[in-house]
């Protein structure tokens, strides 16, 4: 009896190409790697962040950049007592809608907080950064509460 050779090859499920993030999203992500958060001014004058490539109402291309603070205020939040394996933080944390100073709309990201009781709408938070940025939204690893916030 002969033994047949079984073909064995490593297989990686994934795209075999890289995507360009383009002049708007790419500019925003590139700035994140430098710990800067950029918004873009919409047709109605509102500063939008993260920046859409086209105006959400008029569909006009948007290119007027506005640098925002890396601090802001919580507009809404929810408490994840048991994070899922995919979540960016693996200890209990909050998702927040945070409106950065200088922006007219909130953005969604995660908030590292000691307990649910420490989080409230209106709380001030600041961005935290990863040590080695790669130009992704996750370079902004999370937000944290601004200490001594009693607003």
């Amino acid at each position: 009896m002969t033994t047949m050779d079984t073909l064995e090859k490593p297989f990686e499920l994934g795209f075999t190409y890289t995507r360009s993030t383009g002049p708007v999203i790419g500019h925003f992500l590139g700035a994140l790697a430098e710990h800067r958060i950029l918004g873009v001014r919409g047709s109605d004058g509102r500063v939008l962040v993260p920046p859409p490539e086209f105006d959400p109402v008029t569909a006009a291309p948007l290119d007027e950049w506005v640098e925002l603070a890396t601090e802001g205020v919580v507009l809404s939040w929810c408490w994840v007592a048991q994070p899922r394996a995919s979540h960016p933080l693996q200890e209990a944390f909050a998702w927040i809608m945070v409106q950065l100073d200088g922006a007219d709309v909130p953005m969604i990201h995660c908030l590292r907080a000691p307990a649910m009781s420490a989080v409230r709408s209106g709380a001030r938070v600041r961005a935290c950064w990863v040590a080695e940025p790669v130009g992704r939204i996750t370079d902004l690893c999370c937000f944290e509460l601004v200490e001594g916030d009693k607003a």
């Binding site: 999203i25 939040w77 929810c78 998702w95």
Partner: peptide, 21 residues
């Protein structure tokens, strides 16, 4: 794919943000 999917923001959490508002 650039702003929200990389955070793995799940549907329950999104709805919870809406509920709090």
């Amino acid at each position: 794919p650039y702003y929200l999917a990389p955070l793995w923001l799940d549907t329950v959490s999104l709805a919870a943000l809406q509920a709090r508002l």
